[in-house]
Amino acid sequence: MSGRVIKNMLTILFLFAVMLFVANCEQTFEPLKENDRYFFSIYGYLDATADTQWVRVMPIQEQLYPDGEFPEVTVTLEHLESGEKAVMNDSLFYFGHDIYARNYWSTMPLESAETYRLTAEKTDGNASHATVTLPEDYPAPIIDTREVVLVDVDDGLVDVQSIYIVTPQNSDPRVVSVPNVQSTSSASDGGYEVSISQGTDQRYIDRQITGPYSFYIRQIYVAVAGPDWVDFSVIDDRVIELPDGVSNVNSGLGYLAGIVSKTVPFRSCFDDERRLTPCPTEPRLRNY
């Protein structure tokens, strides 16, 4: 090789070496933004008629799907009027696909029309809390002879479900709850009327059950929410998804509702004078 070629090669090597020296500095990389705004995600509802309250309380995660490793958290349910407190118990739930979540439960009795505060606190003192007022109690719903459910409340009816026992062919019976809140209308003398159409409900069940099955309607479940209920049905989905779109959790995310629910058998009950009357409430059937 000629001296000129060697000189050219040395020039190139020098230039590359300088560039590598300048550029080859390690840089820090922070994938997550520092989060001092939201500590917990709290979802669920408190139900004055339930024996046990179940609420999802999760620290804000550093990855999309939690792996089951959760930090130590203290969750407290407090009756604001009396100051009575209960520390809620944690329970790990598995949802398949290596996805876990932690729910908290308490058997502390709740009273309708009372206000409760749920507080979730980490060991470093960072805490989120949600305050919710339960609705007034109301009479159990009546199922009239037209298969119309009559709910005697002025407002706040948020959920109506007809609960079926469905028995697929060659399988065990199971419970299927069919939403019916969309069939609700205001009754002429106050309250709500919900028309139950088993034909319509069957189309819903068809989507849940594969193959032939037999079914019958067993219960009616209704829920009335408290005064701070947000009517989600009129809010844009994207707004609901926003961190602060709809939330009653301070220093956190989520929504905690307060309800009073009633579950009655799907039949008409009459008093001694053959007038329609609420049937006695009973525990709601579930598949757990």
Partner: peptide, 24 residues
Amino acid sequence: LGFDAIQDFSTTLTHYPFGAPQNP
């Protein structure tokens, strides 16, 4: 800032990719 799972108070079963209940 982080991640969580949003619980829906107003929509339908088809929105839930995981953990969809047998009785929606």
